[in-house]
């Protein structure tokens, strides 16, 4: 095979984007998996997509629109999920359908060719520019730094919000923080991975890590590793077989999840053992 391709600027940009996007998305994924709110990812990515289309239609920077609308939807989902007036799935579902509707509405209102819109739907990591990478880098650094500095508050909040609140942690602030980070990460990854496909890069690496460990720290590290691996392997397949990069990245992340699920120690039946559980070293 010809590997000279890695000498080109656009390929180096793509590799760096996959690295940064993989880490940021997978870290967000750990939150949504542990809080049992996977559809927050779907909802926010469609909100970002709708916002970007609004930008394209009205002629301002689509990423500004994406960021604004995803933060807006986070601000709506947050109180609904926090107060438990509706089940989170119901409230997220309502916002999701609204965002999908708005996205198609803006696409219909947009004059001329829709290729810009479709690009945001599928993503194109191979055309990432320096400014895309800087944005991804900022978001990845912020996400990782916040997890590092607020690990104990985050651990308590995703374990159980009521418990976190009862020991004196301002759990609502952390819930909102997590939602806003989700919006920022999705916005920064929108051009690389695309609005339709980004959800699987959030969910799959974290869900795979979830199968493999009982330590939250390891789960964050494994998820980030799987996210980066998905990006890089997907990129290789995209290049060598001339396939759309967003799609190969997503399929790779799904394959990683399936392998993790098959080999998960959490699925093994512990029932038949020579000695009772309590006498075993865990």
């Amino acid at each position: 095979m010809d590997f000279s391709i890695f000498g080109y600027q656009f390929m180096q940009n793509a590799i760096l984007s996959a690295f940064l996007g993989g880490i940021a998305c997978a870290t967000i994924g750990v939150f949504v998996v542990l809080m049992h709110m996977p559809f927050i990812g779907v909802c926010m990515s469609h909100a970002a997509f709708a916002g970007a289309l609004l930008g394209l239609w009205l002629g301002f920077n689509p990423l500004v629109g994406a960021f604004g609308v995803s933060l807006l939807s986070a601000a709506i989902i947050g109180p609904l999920a926090d107060r438990g007036e509706l089940s989170p799935e119901t409230s997220i579902g309502v916002i999701f359908s609204l965002m999908l509707g708005l996205a198609f509405l803006f696409m219909g209102l947009m004059p001329g060719t829709k290729s810009g819109a479709l690009e945001l739907l599928w993503g194109s990591i191979l055309t990432n520019t320096r400014s895309d990478i800087i944005l991804l880098g900022i978001v990845a650094v912020v996400v990782v730094a916040l997890v590092f500095f607020f690990f104990k508050e985050i651990q308590a909040t995703v374990f159980n919000r009521d418990t976190a609140l009862a020991v004196g942690i301002p759990a609502a602030i952390f819930l909102y923080g997590i939602l806003f980070l989700t919006g920022a990460t999705i916005t920064a990854s929108l051009r690389s991975i695309g609005g339709l496909l980004i959800f699987s890069l959030i969910l799959n690496p974290a869900a795979a890590a979830y199968q493999l460990t009982y330590s939250m720290k390891k789960m964050f590290l494994l998820a980030a590793a799987f996210g980066v691996l998905s990006g890089w392997v997907g990129l290789l397949f995209s290049y060598f077989f001339n396939l759309p990069s967003g799609a190969t990245i997503v399929v790779t992340s799904s394959v990683i999840f399936m392998i993790a699920a098959i080999f998960s120690p959490k699925r093994k039946v512990k029932g038949w053992q020579s000695q009772p559980l309590s006498e075993q070293e865990p």
């Binding site: 508050e153 308590a156 020991v167 942690i169 979830y210 330590s215 939250m216």
Partner: peptide, 27 residues
């Protein structure tokens, strides 16, 4: 504060000692 028995996800990646440590986090 000790609530009623809570439903806990059997796969939740957190061990007993870490859960008790959450009691120290606020302080």
């Amino acid at each position: 504060y000790v609530p009623q028995v809570q439903n806990i996800d059997p796969r939740m990646p957190i061990c007993v000692r870490e859960v008790v440590m959450i009691g120290r986090y606020g302080i």
